[in-house]
């Protein structure tokens, strides 16, 4: 069962997202405290939600056919899933509260706050996705399978417009994810991705072969 209750936004990952280099950047006390203060705020404003779907798949050179009739036309996705017999679709969001606060900060000219909130939101979304990915991985490994890397609409030749159909397959509207007229996700700090499932033996075969 894939669930998420809380996500802790790691401070070190936030710093890296903001361009911090451990061996080079000299972080002073005031900046450190100010970032932590806004991170505390961000932590209170995120509400991670996830939605998943999975189907067995048949992969051709240019397209992936799902058991339920859903189809993705993309050579790059087909390449990723060439050894997969099943695929998971995942949608995650951290909700719109943090983004509202970021917009409010921008309106007030508080760029520092907006910057930290924005980065914290990105890290929170990524952490949520990592958690979901890990849960799927544990489940599939128990069944003797392994996962491909994640792949999202907009990567390679998988056109962004396909996200509409992809999110529809997931039922992402139930966690509040929408697409605007330019196919960008709202809330902005949302991720949709596809993950393939392969039999563990496949890797061995490739190595041996």
């Amino acid at each position: 069962m894939i669930t998420v209750s809380t996500i802790k936004i790691p401070y070190d990952k936030l710093l890296i997202r903001l361009g911090y280099w451990q061996t080079k950047t000299k972080l002073n006390k005031k900046t450190d405290e100010s970032i932590k203060e806004i991170l505390d705020l961000a932590q209170k404003l995120i509400k991670p939600k996830i939605v998943t779907a999975f189907e067995n798949t048949i992969v051709n050179e240019q397209e992936i056919l799902f058991n339920n009739g859903y189809k993705i036309k993309s050579a790059s996705v087909a390449s990723l899933l060439r050894n997969s017999f099943r695929a998971y679709g995942v949608g995650i969001t951290i909700g719109n509260t943090l983004e509202d606060k970021r917009a409010e900060s921008l309106r007030k000219g508080e760029i520092f706050s907006a910057l930290i909130l924005d980065a914290a939101g990105s890290v929170a979304a990524e952490e949520t996705m990592i958690l979901v990915n890990a849960q799927i991985k544990i489940y599939e490994e128990k069944n003797g399978n392994k996962l491909t890397k994640r792949y999202s609409p907009g990567y390679g030749d998988w056109v962004l417009e396909d996200n509409r159909q992809f999110l529809s397959w997931l039922g992402a509207e139930r966690i509040g994810i929408k697409l605007n007229e330019f196919c960008q996700m709202i809330p902005e700090k949302s991720i949709s991705a596809l993950i393939g499932v392969e039999k563990l033996e496949n890797k061995k075969e490739r190595i041996c072969g």
């Binding site: 280099w21 002073n28 900046t31």
Partner: peptide, 15 residues
């Protein structure tokens, strides 16, 4: 440029 400062510090100085 030398990465001694990162984005938050740049913004603080700019503000």
């Amino acid at each position: 440029a030398l990465k001694e400062y990162f984005l938050p510090q740049l913004i603080m100085s700019a503000q």
